[in-house]
Amino acid sequence: MKIDHKNFSHFSYDLWLTLIKSNPQFKSKRNLLFKDFFDVECSIEKVTEVVRYYDVLCNNINENNGLNIDTYEIYYFILNALNVKVNDIDTKQLNLFYKETELLFMEYKPQLVFPKIDSLFEEIKAQGKTMNILSNTGFIKGYTLRKIIADYGLEQYFSFQIYSDEVGFSKPNHKIFQLVYDQINSSNEITKKEVLHIGDNSIADYDGAIKFGFAAHLLKI
């Protein structure tokens, strides 16, 4: 990750495809769990197709309206599309399914995009500069992503972490970038141009940050 750090005081990092990427085995196992847990009668190929469709659709909706579709709402969309009677599925069942999904997620945990990223973080920290995570969420909630960051021993480098499901806004909504800026200035008053947001999504990360007034770096892997 080649970035000129000297002109910035704070670094805001996207999470997915910026710091971590999905384990190649997780999604197929998650889809199979979805089929078995809810007794879906469709083929696993159909389940995979529908899950992927709503994953992309809900992400696009979140980017377009700047809000956040709840994980359980996404479950209901998928179940309905797979001809499962959603009126028979209550929150308790969805909670149980999410717990099973989280166990699977931690077993087949995401991989670091840059395995030695901690060396960069150490360098930034040594310069007295600060960092945060700013991530949109979908199937995986913020509190689970915090566990992954902790599991990799990276939580020590971040002053704070903001996830869309926890605040009700998604990038590129200026409100979620304002939350970042407010949090930064609660301990260290700096200008917006001293904040560099780094991410892989041209709409959510790059355009969103630039329009808010932050500097931005579009990560291309």
Score class of each variant (00 low, 15 high):
residue 171 K to Y: 06
residue 116 K to L: 10
residue 153 G to Q: 00
residue 92 K to D: 13
residue 184 I to F: 03
residue 161 Q to C: 15
residue 218 L to S: 09
residue 18 T to D: 05
residue 160 F to E: 12
residue 111 Q to N: 14
residue 84 V to F: 03
residue 20 I to D: 00
residue 51 V to H: 05
residue 131 M to F: 00
residue 94 L to F: 04
residue 75 Y to P: 04
residue 74 I to W: 02
residue 125 K to H: 12
residue 106 M to P: 11
residue 161 Q to P: 04
residue 62 N to I: 05
residue 12 S to H: 02
residue 175 K to H: 13
residue 220 K to E: 12
residue 202 S to W: 15
residue 193 K to M: 09
residue 199 G to H: 01
residue 40 V to L: 01
residue 198 I to V: 11
residue 209 A to R: 00
residue 45 E to A: 11
residue 138 G to N: 08
residue 150 A to F: 08
residue 25 Q to A: 13
residue 119 S to R: 15
residue 184 I to T: 05
residue 184 I to G: 04
residue 159 S to R: 06
residue 137 T to G: 03
residue 54 Y to D: 03
residue 175 K to F: 09
residue 59 N to F: 13
residue 125 K to Q: 12
residue 153 G to A: 01
residue 108 Y to L: 09
residue 65 N to I: 11
residue 73 E to S: 15
residue 220 K to C: 10
residue 23 N to S: 10
residue 128 G to Q: 01
residue 211 K to M: 11
residue 69 I to M: 04
residue 165 D to W: 10
residue 131 M to R: 00
residue 90 D to W: 02
residue 186 S to G: 14
residue 171 K to I: 03
residue 61 I to T: 08
residue 72 Y to L: 09
residue 211 K to Q: 14
residue 208 G to Q: 02
residue 31 N to F: 06
residue 35 K to H: 12
residue 82 L to F: 06
residue 5 H to L: 15
residue 106 M to S: 08
residue 191 T to C: 11
residue 217 H to V: 10
residue 21 K to R: 15
residue 133 I to H: 00
residue 14 D to M: 05
residue 79 L to M: 05
residue 149 I to Y: 00
residue 52 R to M: 12
residue 158 F to T: 01
residue 80 N to Q: 13
residue 178 Q to K: 14
residue 78 I to Y: 02
residue 76 Y to P: 01
residue 95 N to T: 12
residue 217 H to C: 14
residue 204 A to H: 02
residue 51 V to M: 10
residue 185 N to K: 05
residue 69 I to G: 02
residue 116 K to R: 12
residue 11 F to Y: 07
residue 8 F to A: 04
residue 92 K to R: 13
residue 63 E to G: 08
residue 25 Q to T: 13
residue 87 N to L: 08
residue 62 N to L: 07
residue 80 N to T: 07
residue 16 W to S: 09
residue 77 F to A: 05
residue 48 T to L: 05
residue 129 K to Y: 00
residue 206 Y to L: 14
residue 1 M to A: 13
residue 122 E to P: 13
residue 143 Y to S: 09
residue 220 K to R: 14
residue 55 D to C: 09
residue 68 N to A: 06
residue 60 N to Y: 13
residue 104 L to S: 00
residue 217 H to I: 07
residue 129 K to A: 03
residue 19 L to R: 01
residue 192 K to L: 08
residue 32 L to Y: 11
residue 207 D to N: 15
residue 88 D to I: 06
residue 64 N to G: 08
residue 167 V to A: 02
residue 114 F to D: 09
residue 34 F to S: 01
residue 56 V to S: 14
residue 14 D to R: 04
residue 171 K to L: 07
residue 164 S to R: 06
residue 149 I to K: 00
residue 112 L to C: 04
residue 54 Y to M: 04
residue 103 L to K: 15
residue 97 F to Y: 11
residue 195 V to C: 10
residue 31 N to T: 06
residue 50 V to L: 04
residue 28 S to R: 15
residue 94 L to S: 08
residue 204 A to T: 04
residue 216 A to D: 07
residue 156 Q to E: 14
residue 75 Y to I: 05
residue 182 D to V: 07
residue 183 Q to N: 15
residue 57 L to H: 13
residue 218 L to E: 06
residue 205 D to G: 07
residue 205 D to S: 06
residue 196 L to G: 01
residue 40 V to I: 15
residue 56 V to F: 14
residue 15 L to D: 01
residue 42 C to F: 15
residue 121 F to N: 03
residue 121 F to Q: 04
residue 212 F to L: 04
residue 95 N to H: 13
residue 58 C to G: 03
residue 28 S to I: 15
residue 147 K to Y: 03
residue 163 Y to F: 15
residue 192 K to P: 03
residue 54 Y to I: 02
